[in-house]
Nucleic acid binder design. Structure first.
Length: 294
DNA sequence: GCAGGGGAGTTCCCCTGTTT
DNA sequence: AAACAGGGGAACTCCCCTGC
C-alpha cells in the first residue's frame, strides 16, 4: 500500500491510542465519542486490521495497534514541531520520566525547579508507577527504578543508595520512649504494600526478636505511610535519602539505628540508548546525575 | 444477592458542507 | 443535483459500583 490512510481517522486513532480512551480523545478533538468511534472503525476497516480490542467500558490496543501507534506518534510529533516552528512559537522539548511515587514526591519534584530554571524550553513530564517500564510500548524516555543495576538492553546509571531506617514523629518517640530496637515491641509499624518486606529485612538485620514484621496498617504507597508517620500514628521503615529534608526540619526523627544497606535495592536511572540522541534528554540525565552528587 | 445509577463505547438516523 | 464525508444527538448495550 503506497497511499496514506485517511488522515482524520488516523488523527482520531492517535488521540484515542495515546489517551487510551474514546471519550478523552473526543474531548481533545472537540467532537463526540461517537465520531471518534466511527473514525477509528473506518481506519481499522481501511487497514483491514483491528487496532483496538473492545473491552467492557474500555479500549485496549492490539499488538498491531501498539506498533502502529508508536510509529505514527513520532510523525504527529514531527508535525506539531514543524507547526510550532512555522508559527514562531517557542519550541518546547519534552522529556518523559517514570518514577516511584515516593521518589517523585520526596526527592525528584523538590529538585525539579532547578532543572526548569536552567532549561526553560524543556518540559519534564513525570509519571509514577511501581510497574516495570516497557520502553518499546510506552511513551517514556527514562525511568528511575530500584534494583541491582542489571537491566538487559538499556543503559543504566546508578543514582543513590537505598538505606533503610525507622522513622517516626518526634512526639511519638518522646511519648513511647523509643531509644533502642527492643522498644518497637508494642508499637504500630507502618507499611507500604509495595515494599512489604522492608520491616522484616530491617528487623532481621537489627537482631530484633519477638516483633511481627508484617503487623500494622498497610498503605498503597510509602507516601501514605509517610503521612501516617507525620501524624504520629506509628513508626515507618523508610529510605533515608528520600526523607533527609524531613529529618533536617525535624518533622521526622530516626529513633535508633542501625541503617540497613541492601545493594540490590539501589536507585538507578535506566533508558534506551537511542534516547541519548535527544539533547533535552541528555541535559536531564546530566542534571539528574549531578543532583545525586550534591 | 439484587436493583438502580452511571460511565464508556457503539449504532443508527439525520443534518451540513464539500466535491463532482 | 447527487454523492459523499464527517459529525451531532439519542438510544442502546454492557457492566461496574453502590446502597439496601
Amino acid at each position: 500500500m503506497d497511499r496514506l490512510p485517511p488522515l482524520n481517522p488516523l488523527r482520531a486513532f492517535e488521540a484515542a491510542g495515546r489517551l487510551r480512551s474514546i471519550r478523552k480523545a473526543a474531548d481533545e478533538l472537540s467532537v463526540t465519542p461517537g465520531a471518534v468511534s466511527r473514525q477509528v472503525q473506518s481506519l481499522e476497516s481501511h487497514l483491514g486490521t483491528p487496532l483496538f480490542r473492545r473491552e467492557p467500558r474500555e479500549i485496549v490496543l492490539t499488538p498491531e495497534g501498539e506498533q502502529y501507534l508508536a510509529a505514527i506518534t513520532l510523525h504527529f510529533d514531527g508535525i506539531r514541531e514543524a507547526t510550532r516552528k512555522l508559527t514562531g512559537q517557542t519550541t518546547i522539548e519534552v522529556v518523559r520520566i517514570r518514577a516511584y511515587t515516593t521518589f517523585a514526591v520526596k526527592w525528584l519534584i523538590p529538585r525539579l525547579s532547578s532543572f526548569h530554571a536552567d532549561n526553560r524550553t524543556t518540559e519534564v513530564r513525570l509519571t509514577t508507577s511501581v510497574e516495570a517500564v516497557d520502553f518499546d510500548r510506552e511513551n517514556v524516555d527514562g525511568a528511575i527504578r530500584l534494583g541491582d543495576g542489571n537491566w538487559p538492553g538499556v543503559e543504566v546509571d546508578r543514582l543513590i543508595a537505598n538505606e533503610l531506617v525507622p522513622l517516626c514523629s518526634p512526639a511519638l518517640r518522646r511519648h513511647a520512649g523509643l531509644k533502642k530496637v527492643g522498644d518497637l515491641a508494642g508499637q504500630t509499624l507502618l507499611h507500604s504494600l509495595v515494599r512489604l518486606d522492608d520491616w522484616r529485612y530491617w528487623l532481621e538485620a537489627a537482631g530484633a526478636e519477638g516483633i511481627d514484621p508484617y503487623a500494622g496498617p498497610k498503605y498503597a504507597s510509602s507516601t501514605l505511610a509517610y503521612q501516617a508517620a507525620l501524624e504520629g500514628q506509628g513508626v515507618m521503615i523508610a529510605q533515608k535519602a528520600l526523607f533527609s529534608e524531613d529529618l533536617r526540619a525535624r518533622r521526622l526523627v530516626q529513633p535508633f539505628g542501625p541503617p540497613l544497606n541492601r545493594g540490590e535495592f539501589t536507585y538507578y536511572f535506566i533508558y534506551p540508548r537511542n534516547r541519548m540522541r535527544n539533547p533535552a534528554f541528555r541535559r536531564f540525565r546530566e542534571w539528574l546525575l549531578a543532583q545525586t552528587r550534591t
